[in-house]
Design a binder for these strands. Structure first.
Lengths: 133, 133, 133, 133
DNA sequence: GTGGTCTAGACCACC
DNA sequence: GTGGTCTAGACCACC
């Protein structure tokens, strides 16, 4: 298991890990029940300190993405059936991201149609990386 | 001139200013050529440290959103007719934002259609706030 | 004999067992003298490591909830007629739990009356599960 | 500002800090807007590492008890007007604490009335420590 | 000055 | 083996 990590980036390393793992889960690369590498194992693979990886795992657990089973390891959580917790806050966050995207699109001289096309294209590419289930 | 700034937010104040000004420009609220208030003036209006405002202006200049004319003041830059500078970098950034958006949508159990509808709705609301550009 | 145990919970499994057995005894589901299953038997019923069950039994014995009779098995201890041993320590613990409860109630915007009503309601529901002791 | 901390306790130091600060806020000892000591200052007062204090502050911020103002310091948040976030989860936690309390009361041979009296007494003592507002 | 991040390394509880 | 906690100490961004 591998995640690209850039120590010089402005976004903290542990956050990069959180984002990367959430993305892998969303894409289906890490299906429900997958055992993640242990904190120390992943740390040594990525040449990071174990505390950094632990911090990422803890945040992922708080977000409900993974579950820790005592003394056994860490596993990907099953998808939520209905509305996830913090639905309103998450939706607000998504709308915020959209607004920022519209601002960026403006500075790229992209009209609404061009932006939508680009999004659809990105969705399709996304699906290629997806594993069944 | 006024921009909503929240000192309690996790995003840095200078970044909130950058985002707010870029948004106002994109929406046409601040059309080409508009003279921005001086660093110290805006700082006192928003009760911020002038270093914070200066940092925001510097970043906006770097991004080509505003121009400083020595001894005259700071002005909103005209839109680029064709491809803007740093086109590739900006496009990559936009695609990155899209991917993050797709991840968020997954955890909200939003399908592709629902996400697209939400984006179209956000676009339309956006246009309401727009002044002819 | 069965106790609900959740390996995903943050509270250790052996602690969940201790709590569950104490609760069953308090409710009268396990009356005085009941023979508990052997460590290995309970471990296999609940698919737990036998060390985990042994740890729970040891703590329960220390708390005076159960008694091990060498070569015969493990039995629920009879209730003490008057003041139980460690009275002061246990009372201090109870008062500590109350204080924590008051803190929680504060953050739930629950007034004193609302909290008392909730406690009385919980007591009544509790009694339903009770077998005459 | 001072909080009792026991490094040998089973509950982690950072959690003891969280509990202690939440209690002080609930009691009104730390009213809305109070500036907390800086992470490093509190760490040196309690002879703890700054990381430990920082971890406590971060959790308190997540729970909405305190707010960080960038570069300025940490302040006690105003009370929520209506239902707090995570209302259901918090209420479930409170009910869990009550059940555990009932179990403990049983082993102290405390009847329902005795337990209620003790709770009322604890509430009243609690109020003494309370500062107006 | 203020909080946040990260490494190195030790120690501990749980299973 | 597994995650969690803690200290010591360095470095950084923000205001």
């Amino acid at each position: 298991m591998w995640f690209p990590v850039n120590p010089r980036s402005a976004t903290p390393i542990y956050q990069q890990l959180v984002d990367g793992i959430k993305e892998s889960v969303a894409k289906g690369v890490l299906p429900y029940g997958t055992k993640l590498p242990s904190v120390r194992e992943l740390a040594s693979t990525l040449t990071l300190n174990h505390n950094t990886v632990a911090k990422a795992y803890q945040q992922l657990e708080r977000e409900g993405v993974i579950e820790v089973i005592q003394g056994r390891g860490t596993y990907v959580t099953a998808a939520f059936p209905g509305e996830p917790p913090d639905y309103r806050a998450r939706l607000a966050k998504l709308e915020d991201m959209m607004k920022q995207m519209l601002v960026e699109a403006h500075y790229l001289n992209l009209g609404d149609d061009a932006l939508l096309s680009l999004l659809v294209a990105t969705m399709n590419e996304w699906k290629k990386g997806r594993t069944g289930s």
